[in-house]
């Protein structure tokens, strides 16, 4: 699977400059302030695979998603799609060819559709941008096909986005994302703005489309139940780093990293009754001034000396692709 990976992200890092304006800094004698949103994140997505990234808000999941599709330039690291480096200097036509192969589904279905455009124009936009159809009739035919594919009526194309519900809008977003025949979709919390009943419909639609079209997903979410339903592999993020990466079933069955353990303990789920549930103590630290060593040590009940000094590396212990970044796990304390 790793050999034929479709998408490879290698040590992605993104630093944001959150300094005050130059003049205020001069007067208040403050240094420049930087926010390390993502540090050293690596993952790969195989064909027809769904890799999920979970984490609290502020853990950098969305930043990873935006770097993976090329909306945000990484400060360091690289993303390769099918062996082609996305940020290597290439011709405009090469970039455009690469862009066609990846698409994104956004979080807010109310902001991701232009309110002044009719649905057929929205869905046809990528078709026109990549020159995938010869004439207007062909575009109309393809748009009708796509709307049917996501469970809408081709006649809905004449309507404006405000005439649809949240779930229907997300279907339109999926139709737009599919209109360039992509192989890889980045889904940035695609269901978090929807009602629970509609969430299931959208998730099932996405799985169905994955089977039919052979898609690969990078699935960003803060909802563990959703991720469990969708993902083949899961990466748990904490303060800009992946702290654990494991196949979905194993992660839920036997979490390694203390953060994952506490997260699953806190999860109210019928299938997990019998285990005492407790909230994780404390808050996610300020990413501008993160704690030294392991970023999780102030909240970790298993923390010992090295945790306050060294940043643990993501290490694989056994051969089945499980990896955790924790000193206590390496030392065999948990």
């Amino acid at each position: 699977m790793t050999r034929a990976a479709l998408v490879e992200a290698k040590s992605l890092t993104r630093v944001f400059d959150v300094s005050k304006p130059w003049l205020s800094r001069l007067i208040e004698r403050e240094p420049k302030a930087y926010l390390k949103a993502v540090t050293n994140v690596s993952f790969s997505v195989g064909r027809r695979e769904t890799v999920a990234l979970v984490g609290e808000s502020g853990s950098g999941k969305s930043t990873v998603a935006r770097m993976t599709v090329g909306l945000l330039t990484p400060t360091a690291g690289s993303v390769t799609i099918d062996g082609i480096d996305m940020w290597a200097p290439a011709g405009a036509s090469e970039r455009q060819k690469l862009r066609r192969r990846l698409q994104m589904i956004f979080q807010d279905p109310f902001a991701s559709l232009n309110p002044r455009w009719r649905v057929d124009r929205i869905v046809a936009d990528p078709i026109k941008a990549f020159g995938l159809a010869k004439d207007g009739a062909q575009i109309r035919h393809r748009v009708g096909e796509l709307l049917t594919l996501v469970g809408l009526d081709p006649a809905d194309g004449a309507k404006y986005p405000h005439e649809f519900s949240g779930g229907q809008r997300q279907r339109i977003c999926i139709a737009r994302a599919l209109s360039s025949n992509p192989e890889f979709l980045v889904c940035d919390e695609p269901t978090s703005a929807l009602d629970v009943s509609v969430q299931a419909q959208i998730l099932n639609l996405m799985r169905d489309l994955q089977d039919r079209l052979g898609l690969s997903y990078l699935f960003i979410s803060h909802n563990l139940a959703v991720v469990r339903h969708m993902a083949t592999r899961i990466g748990v993020m904490y303060l800009g780093r992946i702290v654990e990466m494991a196949p979905a079933a194993e992660l839920f069955a036997a979490p390694r990293h203390p953060y994952t353990r506490l997260l699953l303990d806190a999860l109210p789920d019928l299938g997990m009754t019998g285990r005492p549930r407790r909230p994780i103590e404390g808050e996610i630290p300020n990413p501008i001034a993160p704690p030294p060593g392991c970023a999780f040590h102030p909240r970790c009940p298993w923390a010992f000396e090295p945790c306050r000094v060294d940043v643990p590396a993501l290490m694989t212990k056994d051969g089945n692709g499980r990896a955790a970044a924790c000193h206590a796990v390496v030392a065999g304390r948990i």
Binding site: V69, G70, L71, R95, Q96, R99, R100, Q103, M104, F106, Q107, D108, A111, S112, L113, N114, R116, W117, I122, D125, P126, A129, F130, C173, R176, S180
Partner: peptide
């Protein structure tokens, strides 16, 4: 996000300004 969706498919700033944002 609709502007990001347009940037994602490589639409230039002029086209985004006048076709997507202007209306």
């Amino acid at each position: 996000e609709y502007v990001e969706a347009a940037r994602l498919i490589g639409i230039g700033p002029l086209k985004i300004m006048f076709q997507h944002i202007l209306p």
